[in-house]
């Protein structure tokens, strides 16, 4: 099929590329050197007016992850008065039952005297080489004990099997990475405790 090949279409395309090329310099000038390394610069490159150089130069500049971001899970512990770690996890096993690839292994602690289970995990393993970062464990935990982490810099020289010590992180860290979720859950827990205290006061 013959067509007239005057090159007009190619020139049109090249003009688009030329415009983008010139924009990279103009945008750099507009920002007067504060375009790279600053949070405003990074935010500008992710907004609707992004033009010019689109690159975010990892590792010097990191795009902040949104609050709902999910990577490998972690276990939340509250800090007790003497600085000891009180794990919120009661080893109920719901997270390991809902995990789609079954990558959570939990050993429930048993009281040696009575033989009844104690709500505290003896061992807790997550195989990060199986985990698919779906977030179902965090979604269905009734005790707000397991949450999805934001830390994605997990490259290592060996296989990644995380045990309880590696997974435990403080509640202050959780409030720092997910402020809105943490505030909502703390309010819900406080409300439930208040209503339970009121019910006990009424009954007693």
């Amino acid at each position: 099929m013959t067509q007239e090949m005057y090159g007009k279409g190619i020139l049109k395309g090249l003009s688009v590329s030329l415009k983008r090329f010139v924009e990279t310099y103009l945008d750099d000038l507009k920002w007067l050197g504060k375009r790279y390394g600053t949070p405003e610069g990074i935010a500008h490159r992710a907004s609707k007016e992004a033009r010019g150089i689109f690159t975010v130069q990892y590792p010097e500049e990191k795009i902040p992850v949104p609050e709902e971001f999910r990577f490998i899970p972690f276990l939340v512990y509250d800090e007790g008065p003497d600085g000891e770690k009180i794990m919120r996890c009661t080893s109920c096993g719901i997270c390991s039952r809902v995990c789609p690839p079954q990558c959570i292994w939990i050993v429930r602690t048993t009281d040696p005297a009575t033989g009844r289970p104690i709500p505290d995990p003896a061992e807790f393993y997550i195989d990060a080489d199986i985990c698919m970062n779906c977030g179902l464990c965090a979604e269905y935990c009734p005790f707000d004990a397991i949450k999805m982490d934001h830390d994605y810099e997990l490259a290592s020289f060996g296989r990644n099997l995380f045990n309880k010590e590696r997974l435990a992180k403080p509640a202050s860290y959780y409030e720092q990475i997910r402020p809105r979720n943490a505030a909502r859950e703390n309010a819900a827990r406080a409300a439930k405790q208040a209503s339970r205290a009121a019910a006990r006061a009424n009954a007693g």
């Binding site: 096993g93 390991s96 939990i106 289970p117």
Partner: peptide, 13 residues
């Protein structure tokens, strides 16, 4: 059918 019994409560990895 999942969940497997080997994961909890005696889920030694």
């Amino acid at each position: 059918i999942k969940p497997y019994k080997s994961r909890w409560p005696e889920g030694r990895h």
